[in-house]
Design a protein around this nucleic acid. Structure first.
Lengths: 207, 207
DNA sequence: AGCAGTGTACCAAACACTTGTTACAATTTC
DNA sequence: GAAATTGTAACAAGTGTTTGGTACACTGCT
């Protein structure tokens, strides 16, 4: 399943360098490219040769930089989610009010997910379309990421009859799927975040 | 990509017959089987030979019943969404209060999505992992389905500062993704639906 | 009653192609 | 000239799809 239907316009970038230190620049570039393709076409929709073509080498030559497609995906998934997690935690540290903290978290995550060449977004939604062996390696990263929101939700003074687990799951599945319906023209990520809080804000004690 | 990792336990059923009238029983059975596989493994994760194996014939023989894999998927998508739409519309007709109507819609849709062998659920989430030519054929069905919720949301007396479009999108993406996190042991679809309303219910005029 | 004809339902085999991956050789770079 | 980088070429397996043929039931005809 090649990806030539969509132009995949963005050129191979190296600017924000989501991938850290120990890897060579060329390897980091390849990871960036692979991440973009995985984000747009999913795990199954991205072939080794697709990645190679955009990186300027043949599919087989990629194996000088990666061990396998699975390992590549796991590494990207980990880097993207860890990066997003740290960005969220840095942002929420600036607030103390629970609702402001949650809104800041939503805003930050939406800004990451909805950036023109986001690398995070469908990596979470593809969970079930990935081989089970890969799923196993994704779980820990995923849990660490969701823990941030678990703590944020636990701080909220919401009514007792609201199930906090469901509340968190709904919020997260909503933020994760934002890339599927977002249209750049309309609302900014910050505005969407504000709307999310408007809906999800409930004070304990109110009817 | 074969599907042998998961057992796919359910035997070829014919009981509820989502697929109507003009098709032969054998063809309906094949559609049911294909729908189950598409629902569990997605479009790309389900091969023609997978479907054939579960239906008891070789992959090539399926082409006596279908025109192409794409056409098969489109037909199933249409039948599943139309069935769900009619179920929701039938249910909400029993209520007049806007919030009761919305809750009934959520409950009905969740019951369909979370049924043991649901045929609808990932058919909507797979939208972006399907060939563009297939996407085009899914749009009309999808729009008709979402229109039900558009009308439901327009009836609601929610505060003016809530964007109704975003409200509807969030609600729908939430209901659609329920199958990804649902665990049969915990809450029933009806209880989840009630929780959804608890969060999404806001009366105009309140602070 | 028996026979030809027709259509359904399926198999066997192949087609052209894509998939992840490997072994090895050639090239570039320092 | 050693080491990092890329190409060549193939592997075994899987992809959607087509073709030709077979077994069988059902029809109409004589």
């Amino acid at each position: 399943m090649n990806a030539s239907a969509s132009p995949d316009s963005a050129p191979p970038t190296l600017a924000p360098t989501l991938f850290s230190g120990d890897a060579s620049p060329r390897r980091r570039q390849i990871l960036e490219i692979a991440a973009q393709l995985f984000a747009r076409h999913g795990y199954q929709g991205t072939s080794i040769r697709d990645i190679g073509e955009r990186a300027g080498l043949l599919g087989g030559s990629l194996y000088h930089y990666i061990k396998s497609k699975d390992a590549l995906f796991v590494e990207i998934h980990h880097a993207a989610l860890e990066s997003a997690r740290q960005a969220v935690e840095t942002t929420i540290a600036r607030y103390t009010d629970p609702w402001l903290r949650l809104e800041a978290a939503c805003r930050t995550l939406l800004e990451i997910q909805l950036a023109p060449d986001s690398l995070t977004l469908p990596l979470m939604n593809d969970f079930r379309r990935v081989p089970p062996s890969v799923q196993d390696q994704m779980i820990a990263t995923r849990d660490a990421f969701e823990d941030v929101f678990r703590r944020l939700v636990d701080e909220l003074p919401i009514p007792a009859e609201i199930d906090r687990r469901l509340y968190r799951i709904m919020l997260l599945s909503l933020l994760n799927s934002a890339g599927e319906w977002y249209q750049p023209g309309r609302l900014t990520p910050a505005e969407i975040g504000a709307q999310v809080i408007r809906i999800y804000r409930h004070e304990a004690g109110a009817a």
